[in-house]
């Protein structure tokens, strides 16, 4: 107490000024080090963090792949070869329904993870089921769209524009289909194995995947559908 506490205050002020968020320093300092925080001498990051972050990197690479399809679509948009134009392809009411189904499924997916955090088996399963049914409705609507387009002679081989259209929208539909299978697998695993650590990690990854598909759909309904009918 000889120095009236001044040096400590000055030291704190200096540390806050230099690094307000203490980036890369959490788990150190006055608080006791956190095991598994992944910083400095506190050991490797927890598996939950490693798994989630790794899946995030995969999702970003998936989004880069979608970007390639978006780029192809944008470049080939005008190459209709005298065939159907974007305006002939778009049916806004159905797109509205698809968007509603996917957005609501994203919502119920978030609720299912809330139930997972509350360790409620019943509500996790209920919300996962609702998510799956909404995803199924989305895929069904999209299939119906593709079939009705094909019936009008609008197929991928008709023009470069249609190749880009079916490639981009179809790739997203394929993702939703595969995610639906993953969802069914997760429901079975949650039922049989319960909320074990690795099961919760998989649920985190599934949530991320499902939400990322909704983000890609925002790009599709904006660029492909809505901008297809704007002058």
């Amino acid at each position: 107490m000889s120095d009236l506490g001044l040096p400590a205050a000055v030291e704190t002020l200096r540390r806050v000024r230099e690094d307000p968020h203490r980036l890369g320093h959490r788990g150190h300092g006055p608080d006791s080090p956190v095991e598994g925080a992944g910083h400095g001498a506190t050991g490797p990051a927890r598996k939950r963090i490693v798994v989630g972050y790794g899946f995030w990197i995969f999702l970003l690479s998936d989004i880069v792949m979608f970007a390639c399809f978006f780029a192809a679509f944008a470049v080939l948009r005008g190459a209709t070869a005298g065939g159907p134009t974007p305006r002939d392809v778009v049916e806004l009411p159905r797109v509205g329904l698809e968007t509603a189904a996917l957005l609501l499924s994203s919502y119920t997916c978030g609720l299912s993870f809330a139930a997972t955090n509350a360790r409620s088996l019943l509500w996790t399963q209920v919300f996962l089921l609702v998510t799956g049914l909404l995803g199924l409705a989305f895929v069904g609507l999209e299939l119906q769209e593709f079939i009705s387009l094909a019936a009008r002679g609008i197929t991928p081989q008709r023009s470069a524009f249609l190749t880009g259209f079916f490639g981009l929208v179809g790739l997203h539909g394929l993702h939703v289909t595969v995610a639906g299978m993953w969802l069914a697998t997760m429901m079975a695993q949650v039922q049989v194995k319960g909320f074990r650590r690795e099961i919760v990690h998989r649920l985190i990854c599934f949530n991320l995947f499902w939400h990322a598909l909704d983000i890609v759909w925002i790009g599709i309904f904006t660029i492909v559908y809505l901008m297809g009918v704007t002058p």
Binding site: G27, G36, R46, I49, G52, C205, H211
Partner: peptide, 19 residues
């Protein structure tokens, strides 16, 4: 085994997306 304690997160550590 530090990886044993993976169920609970601490407010002071980094977080993965969705978590």
């Amino acid at each position: 085994d530090p990886n044993l304690h993976t169920a609970e997160l601490d407010a002071r550590e980094d977080h993965a997306p969705g978590d």
